[in-house]
């Protein structure tokens, strides 16, 4: 019987996990810091945030997805979080059918970093924060490219890292690391056409694959051999390179002058 493999999450799993293993959690600390407290109080006047805690020294605020523009606008204009240093999404489709989107903000005047998080359903779209932070232009394009999350009112929502005619969204957990069929034949289809798939052959993706007899693709191990040489032939040992070269002196180590490395 073929072993069952889950299709909704093809991420590599550990081959062994102890039955009674319970993963420890990083504690979600309450907000004690004065600066963060003031920011939260200020934010509470504008937006109704769900939860706020400190994780490893950075404030995490969980909000509703439709409040994202209002929250970031408030944090930028009132609290001094002027830089959107990072944003992207996490795929929780297999567990909850949702994406988690995070915005990592930096206040340079206060040396504080905040992470604003919200969740959206698979087919929902999120409002663009590009009018507030120009850097979101590219981050949101990357998020669309990698996860297929639609962004409303984005000036130029196109793929950014993958080619325009790519199939699938690579960072989703359903997308295999080695790519789906369209990905594996992408360059052959594009350059030569589908009819050349048989001639060129499938990709060799086994990292441990070594063929000692295959001289068409690689020289024999430890030896240089001519292309497509007979696998049983004696390997050609090359010691001198320019013995057959015209007007060229052969290198002699004894005559060479070795320069001191530290001048």
């Amino acid at each position: 019987m073929r072993p069952y493999k889950p299709k909704d999450n093809v991420q590599k799993k550990s081959y062994y996990t102890d039955r009674f293993w319970v993963a420890p959690r990083i504690p979600e600390e309450s907000v004690e810091d004065e600066v963060y407290k003031a920011d939260l109080e200020s934010l509470a006047k504008a937006v109704n945030y769900k939860k706020a805690y400190i994780m490893r020294g950075q404030l995490v605020i969980i909000i509703d997805a439709k409040d994202n523009v209002a929250t970031l606008k408030h944090l930028k204009e009132e609290c001094g979080y002027e830089v959107l240093s990072e944003m992207s999404a996490i795929d929780y489709l297999a567990q909850d059918g949702e994406f988690e989107i995070f915005y990592q903000l930096l206040a340079m005047s206060k040396r504080r970093r905040i992470r604003v998080k919200c969740r959206i359903k698979e087919n929902e779209a999120i409002e663009s924060v590009e009018p507030i932070f120009r850097s979101a232009d590219w981050s949101e394009r990357e998020m669309y490219d990698m996860f297929g999350i639609k962004v409303n009112n984005h000036p130029n929502l196109k793929r950014i890292l993958m080619p325009e005619d790519w199939v699938g969204y690579p960072l989703r957990k359903t997308y295999p690391l080695h790519g789906d069929e369209a990905a594996q034949w992408y360059e052959v289809d594009k350059i030569f056409g589908k009819e050349y798939r048989d001639i060129i052959g499938p990709e060799q993706r086994d990292p441990a694959y070594v063929s000692t007899t295959d001289t068409c693709n690689f020289a024999r191990i430890h030896h240089e051999v001519p292309r497509c040489a007979d696998p049983n032939s004696e390997p050609e040992k090359i010691e001198v390179f320019n013995d057959d070269a015209l007007l060229t002196e052969t290198f002699d180590l004894k005559k060479a002058k070795i320069v001191d490395r530290n001048r």
């Binding site: 550990s14 293993w21 993963a23 990083i26 994780m55 490893r56 240093s85 990072e86 990592q104 970093r113």
Partner: peptide, 24 residues
Amino acid sequence: QGMRPPVGEVYAPTESPKGELGFF
């Protein structure tokens, strides 16, 4: 098997020669 870190998330910024290089 590899180490098993606790459940959670972290963003660590550093100053690389090019600028702020961080891993989330």
